[in-house]
C-alpha cells in the first residue's frame, strides 16, 4: 500500500532534523548549555498514510511537529514536501505553507479564539486566501457538517461548546483550507474517554473522504493502535524504533518500546496475572549490536548522543542500536 516510496518522493520527508534550545543565563556564557530537543530525526510520510510519533513528555515529538508546521525554526536538517524543501531560503511563504499542512491542537479549550464566533474563525482564513465572499458561507456550513456539527453552530462562541465539540471545530479549522497533511498533536488526550472514540472515528472518516495524510503525536499507545499505519517511538530526541503498527505491537523489540507497551492497561493481564500476552521473553539485539540507549530512565538531553544507527530487523522495522 505504501511501497511506492521508490518511484515518487514521499509526501513529507524529514531529513536529519535537529532542534536545539540554548538554556541558562544569557549573560554568563559559561552557564549556557544546549538542550537537544530533537537530535537527528529521519522520517517520511506517504500519501494517505497515518504515521504516529509516540514517546513520553519532553521527548521532542511536539517540537518535531512544530518544526514541520513552521512554528519552530530547526537548528539543522531539512523538511521536504513532495521532494521540495519547505525550510531555508527556498521555503514557501506562509500562505503557500498553509495549504500544505495544518494542525489540530491538544487543548480544545485554548485552541479557539474566545472572542470570535465559530463562523468567523472559519471564514477569516478563507477570506485571507481569496475565496469569493459568495462561497464563504457555503464552505463554512459544509465543513461544519463534515465534522458532525450543524451550520447553525457557526453563530456561537467557543465557550458555548463542550470539549468534544470544540475539538470538532478545531478539526474543521484545520481542514478549511484543504491541506494535504494534518498534524494531530495529542488530538484526544484532553478529552473525556467517552468522546475519544467519536473523535478518532471522525478523523478516520475524514482521512478516507478527503484522502488526508496524518502525522499523529501521542503518548497514548491505546489511541495509536487504532489509527496508525506506522509508528515511530521517540526517546529523548531520537527515534528508537520504527515500523508498521502491527510489527511494533506484536514484536516490540527496543527495551523502551517494550516498556511503553507494558503500560497499556490490558484486561487479560488483570484477569489472568500469570498470562501477560505482551511480556514474553525480551528479544535479543541483532548480532554484533547492542540496543541504544540501553540505560532508560536517565536521559541526558544536554550532551551529543552516542554513535548509533537504526538497524533493520524485519521488513520496514527498525531499531536503534550501537555496535557492540
Amino acid at each position: 500500500m505504501k511501497d511506492n516510496a521508490t518511484t515518487a518522493p514521499p509526501l513529507l520527508e524529514i531529513r536529519d532534523l535537529h532542534v536545539h534550545f540554548p538554556v541558562g543565563n544569557k549573560l554568563f556564557a559559561r552557564n549556557r548549555r544546549l538542550l537537544r530537543a530533537v537530535s537527528g530525526i529521519n522520517l517520511s510520510l506517504g500519501h494517505g498514510e497515518c504515521l504516529s510519533i509516540v514517546g513520553e513528555s519532553g521527548c521532542g515529538k511536539s517540537t518535531t511537529a512544530l518544526a514541520v508546521m513552521g512554528l519552530q525554526e530547526p537548528t539543522s536538517g531539512d523538511i521536504l514536501v513532495d521532494g521540495q524543501s519547505i525550510i531555508g531560503d527556498n521555503a514557501p511563504g506562509r500562505m503557500d505553507r498553509a495549504r500544505i499542512a495544518q494542525m489540530v491542537f491538544q487543548d480544545p479549550y485554548a485552541s479557539l479564539n474566545p472572542r470570535q464566533t465559530v463562523h468567523r474563525s472559519l471564514a477569516a482564513p478563507l477570506r485571507l486566501h481569496g475565496t469569493p465572499n459568495s462561497e464563504i458561507d457555503d464552505r463554512v456550513a459544509d465543513i461544519l457538517k463534515k465534522v458532525g456539527l450543524l451550520p447553525e453552530h457557526g453563530a456561537r462562541f467557543p465557550h458555548e461548546f463542550s470539549g468534544g465539540q470544540r475539538q470538532r471545530i478545531g478539526i474543521a479549522r484545520a481542514l478549511i483550507l484543504g491541506p494535504r497533511i494534518l498534524m494531530l498533536d495529542e488530538p484526544v488526550s484532553a478529552l473525556d474517554v467517552s468522546v475519544r472514540a467519536q473523535i478518532i472515528n471522525l478523523l478516520l472518516d475524514l482521512q478516507e473522504d478527503l484522502s488526508l495524510s496524518f502525522v499523529m503525536i501521542s503518548h497514548d499507545l491505546g489511541v495509536v493502535e487504532h489509527m496508525s499505519d506506522r509508528v515511530a517511538v521517540m526517546y529523548f530526541g531520537q527515534i528508537v524504533e520504527l515500523g508498521r503498527w502491527d510489527a511494533i505491537f506484536a514484536r516490540p523489540t527496543h527495551p523502551y518500546t517494550r516498556k511503553l507497551i507494558a503500560t497499556i492497561p490490558d484486561p487479560d493481564t488483570v484477569l489472568h496475572p500469570d498470562r501477560d500476552r505482551r511480556a514474553g521473553k525480551a528479544p535479543e539485539p541483532p548480532a554484533g549490536y547492542r540496543f541504544c540507549p540501553e540505560d532508560i530512565g536517565r536521559p541526558d538531553v544536554y550532551s551529543v548522543p552516542a554513535e548509533s544507527a537504526l538497524i533493520e530487523i524485519g521488513p520496514g522495522h527498525f531499531v536503534r542500536c550501537a555496535t557492540a
Binding site: 513552521g70 495544518q102 485571507l128
Partner: peptide, 8 residues
C-alpha cells in the same frame, strides 16, 4: 499558533 499556520 493556528492563525500563523493558516497564513496570517
Amino acid at each position: 499558533q493556528a492563525a500563523s499556520t493558516l497564513g496570517y
